[in-house]
Design a protein around this nucleic acid. Structure first.
Lengths: 181, 181
DNA sequence: GTCTATAATGGGATAGAC
DNA sequence: GTCTATCCCATTATAGAC
């Protein structure tokens, strides 16, 4: 893990910068400076700036799709519990990439390359809401979803402790025994 | 409210675009097109693009400061309850502006003009966490804070219903009778 | 107050040497 | 694979007419 290829370095630096400053807020200059190479080298390894973003999102998006597929056959309560666990796990493994898929950066979700992500995040949100069409449950699911994604970018706590904290807040926010007052 | 000045129109359109596409993702062209004027007109009313942003943030930031000041003399439990109510109220009145202050757009918080905002969001976060230095409580507060700010941008529900939903999820996530397992 | 025209800068991307 | 040099375009901002 110590010796990595230039290509991997580019992805690492780009993920970090994109998560912190946004896609538009990060220039190829910035990434190249972080990597220690020229802009031209970036564009030797990737066809375009968009291609770097697409590469970053790809693996995370695929796993999100797998998670959503796993939830489908479950009943509402089981799907909700599995969605919380699976989502927290996924976000912790793709901290910076997660922010690009769903992290207060709604603009990218409207671009064609990300069109297939919208149904996935919607499905995850529905599962987190316990498949309820209650407006309050949907809002809570969205708060948890976007909140967790945003928080993990900068949080550098011990992963085990962080996971426990995220699972705790998600469960408290989403699973409530009495329907509501 | 129907007939507004060009200046107010600029602020309205800019807030909308900034919230949706980010500061860097919004050009003066975009704003001018939305307003129905030229770029030069924008820069007649405001000294720069930054000045538009600063104007948008100003009122919301001032009220955030007032909220934090009101929390200070309270004990932990009362401050937490007041922070939840005050924060939800504030965010609902400054939906789009809130995203600029604290909405997955951490880059602006590092700019000089926003330096005084960091202590305020930190203080609010501490109050939401019940002034506990428990890592889990701090994480929960951050999740609720960033989650709510992100969600209200696009949510066009009935404000009363939305407020109830936000208060509900915030209280469940943050106020838990038994410390934790 | 609003416009057109025009700097001046920085962005993404390409060409070609090494 | 990596670089320097360059191109083209979008962007912010200014100048000056109306």
């Amino acid at each position: 893990m110590v010796r990595v290829s230039t290509r991997d370095e580019i992805l690492r630096v780009a993920a970090e910068r994109f998560a912190h400053f946004g896609y538009k807020g990060t220039s190829l200059q910035d990434i190249a400076a972080g990597v220690g190479c020229s802009k031209a080298t970036l564009l030797y390894h990737f066809a375009s700036k968009d291609a770097i973003l697409a590469q970053l999102v790809e693996a995370a998006a695929r796993e999100l799709g797998e998670l959503v597929a796993r939830l489908e056959p479950l009943d509402a309560a089981a799907a909700q519990a599995a969605a919380i666990d699976g989502f927290v796990d996924l976000v912790l493994r793709y901290r910076r990439e997660a922010a690009l898929i769903y992290g207060g950066i709604p603009q990218f979700l409207q671009e064609p390359a990300f069109a297939d992500l919208l149904p996935l995040t919607d499905a995850l949100c529905a599962a987190l809401a316990g498949r309820s069409d209650d407006a309050s449950a949907c809002v809570a699911a969205k708060v948890v979803l976007s909140g967790i994604v945003t928080v993990v970018i900068d949080e550098d706590k011990d992963p085990t402790e962080l996971r426990a904290a995220l699972l705790g807040v998600a469960r408290r926010a989403l699973i409530h025994p009495h329907e509501k007052d």
